[in-house]
């Protein structure tokens, strides 16, 4: 256990030292969060609350609705883009071989490689929310912490699995990652990031129900904005548990297969 923690900490330290060495990029990522929050704050001024609005289940305020959407969809983007990017960079530089020849298991390599970006993403999400509350006056009543944390944990497992599946494509095909397209574009459009999925036509709505982000955002919005009880959030948590239960083992198994194929083809360091 101690060795496992030390290995994970080593990944965390490596990525922190690397990222912190690019000081300008470190600072601009937080400036970007401020700018996007401000943009949606002013857009939300155009959307006046009215009765019987599709935003009613989320407290009726568009700004609160969209901030949760963009803050947590950043987590998906992080897993989906950073993990494959880390694997690809390791392929290009040759560090992947050096890591694989070490006595570290595949799950630890994958989890360790995404740990820093996950924590950075959590910090960014919290920064997003704090900024929204303090600077832009987002209304937060009583947060259902248990519901929020359970939803967040399952969301992270689902998104990590999607990131691992994306990394499999990079390992074998080097470029052209369909998961990035499916979950990046489709989740942004149909996952309820910018608008409630209720406004979508019925024939397309069913796609939304196949996306984990739909349930993540639903659960998080209800936990944070409307202080819903745990039983009200339970359907989202159950749906996310099913996704996590399928995706996580599947992604680890697929990564093993992808790694085996790359080792068989001798293409671990090809790019």
């Amino acid at each position: 256990m101690n060795t496992l923690i030390q290995k994970l900490f080593a990944f965390l330290k490596r990525d922190f030292l690397e990222e912190a060495s690019y000081k300008f990029s470190f600072v601009t990522s937080f400036v970007g969060i401020f700018l996007s929050s401000a943009t949606f704050f002013f857009i939300s001024k155009l959307i006046s609350p009215n009765s019987d609005s599709v935003l009613d289940p989320y407290g009726g305020d568009y700004f609160s609705f969209v901030i949760i959407g963009i803050a947590f969809s950043g987590l998906l983007a992080m897993f989906q883009e950073r993990l494959p990017a880390v694997i690809r960079q390791a392929q290009i530089t040759g560090t992947l071989e050096a890591i694989l020849v070490s006595r570290t298991s595949i799950p630890v390599i994958l989890f360790g490689s995404s740990l820093y970006y996950f924590l950075f993403s959590v910090v960014s999400t919290v920064f997003h929310l704090v900024l929204a509350v303090i600077v832009f006056g987002m209304q937060v009543e009583q947060i259902n912490w248990l519901g929020a944390l359970a939803t967040f944990f399952l969301t992270a497992v689902c998104f990590l699995s999607i990131g691992i599946l994306s990394a499999c494509f990079i390992l074998v095909y080097k470029k052209g990652n369909p998961f990035s397209w499916i979950y990046g574009s489709v989740s942004g459009l149909l996952g309820g990031v910018f608008f409630p999925i209720k406004v979508l036509p019925g024939w397309i709505k069913w796609i939304s129900y196949l996306l984990p982000i739909t349930y993540s955002l639903e659960g998080l919005r209800k936990s944070i904005i409307t202080s819903s009880s745990f039983s009200e959030i339970l359907p989202s948590i159950l749906a996310l548990s099913v996704f996590a239960g399928i995706f996580f083992p599947l992604s680890l198994y697929t990564f093993r297969l992808a790694l085996k194929k790359a080792k068989k083809d001798g293409t671990l360091t090809h790019y």
Binding site: A10, F11, S102, R103, T104
Partner: peptide, 10 residues
């Protein structure tokens, strides 16, 4: 230090 940790050196 990174590679030593991956190799389980305490």
């Amino acid at each position: 230090d990174f590679f030593a940790a991956l190799n389980g050196i305490p």
